[in-house]
């Protein structure tokens, strides 16, 4: 309290020269900030920012890989990207993937968080167990789920057969309409745990008295969920949504392991196409264009979302 008074007093005295003082304070802050920021920024600039800028430069060249001479070709790679139907297809898939990840991983996280929060005795057990898939690396997730989805010997189709639901068995990874969804389920299995933990924490922060008040007003369970719980989760929700969108956009490993974009490009994401362009086809120029596209998308989504979130908060 005393501190607050002192600062207020100081501010009051300083008011006539406020602009000048602010500038000086800013400079002072900068001098203290530099040594604290330097370790992080030095590493980050060298191993992340520099490669990002080099990629940008590559997108204007005809580079075909290591040690080959690359010359400046202007916007021709951008023209090729625009004319390549697979680029457009993979762009659509990337948005479908992102949305699927948001709904499946985010949704499952929310539902399980709501259910787990109702537990007392066994809460920790369930919370811990549900988080386990998140500990598995995505490459391993791909190997496990490719075996689960095997049309002839897989866990899923075999289980359906045994349950007498053989009619439901599918070519989970061969059907053009199913494949992206199937891989996304595997990816969401790995991803939902983190979102669930965040939602559980958000639920703990909701004021209990709100529920009591709602009870007195005669609200049933659904109404409590709708009018108390979900609004109370708004802040966590925005955090989870932004995290899930970024993770969705970065989706790569499960598709790479399970289908490598196939069959016939039906599960191609921008990231998997970049990888094959660079490593199989040695077309580094076009790959770089797609990197630029992906980065632009990521930044665009983040900015738009933050803007929307800011307006919502107001």
């Amino acid at each position: 309290m005393a501190t607050r008074l002192t600062t207020a007093a100081r501010r009051g005295i300083a008011r006539p020269k406020v602009a000048h003082r602010a500038r000086r304070a800013g400079r002072e802050a900068l001098t203290s900030a530099i040594p604290l920021l330097l370790p992080a920024l030095a590493i980050y600039a060298l191993f992340s920012l520099l490669p990002i800028f080099l990629t940008f430069w590559l997108s204007f060249t005809d580079s075909r890989g290591l040690n080959t001479s690359a010359s400046f070709v202007g916007l021709s790679n951008y023209g090729r990207a625009a004319a390549d139907p697979i680029v457009w297809q993979s762009l659509v898939h990337t948005f479908q993937w992102l949305l699927g990840h948001l709904l499946m991983a985010g949704g499952l996280g929310l539902i399980l968080a709501l259910a787990v929060s109702r537990l007392r005795l066994t809460r920790v057990v369930f919370r811990t167990a549900f988080f386990l898939p998140h500990l598995v690396s995505l490459a391993v997730v791909g190997v496990i789920w490719a075996n689960i989805y095997d049309p002839f010997y897989g866990l899923l189709n075999t289980a359906l057969d045994r349950l007498g639901l053989g009619a439901l068995s599918q070519g989970w990874l061969s059907d053009p309409l199913l494949v992206l969804f199937s891989v996304n389920v595997a990816s969401s299995w790995q991803g939902f745990g983190l979102y669930m933990l965040l939602f559980i924490a958000g639920l703990q922060n909701i004021d209990h008295s709100l529920y009591e008040a709602a009870e007195i007003d005669g609200a049933n369970g659904w109404q409590q969920l709708w009018y108390v719980t979900l609004p109370g989760l708004a802040e966590v929700m925005t955090f989870v949504v932004s995290l899930a969108m970024i993770n969705g956009l970065k989706g790569f490993a499960t598709v790479f392991v399970m289908t490598n974009g196939g069959p016939f490009y039906q599960s191609e994401l921008i990231t998997t196409y970049i990888y094959r362009l660079a490593f199989s086809m040695q077309d580094h120029g076009l790959a770089a264009v797609l990197c630029v596209l992906l980065s632009t998308l990521a930044i665009g989504i983040t900015v738009v979302f933050n803007h929307w979130r800011g307006r919502l908060a107001r």
Partner: peptide, 20 residues
């Protein structure tokens, strides 16, 4: 500038990273 890094998958920049 730092947040940009949060959004870019490492696969997208691995070739220049290798060169660095």
């Amino acid at each position: 500038l730092v947040i940009i890094g949060l959004t870019i998958p490492v696969q997208a920049i691995v070739i220049p990273l290798y060169q660095v």
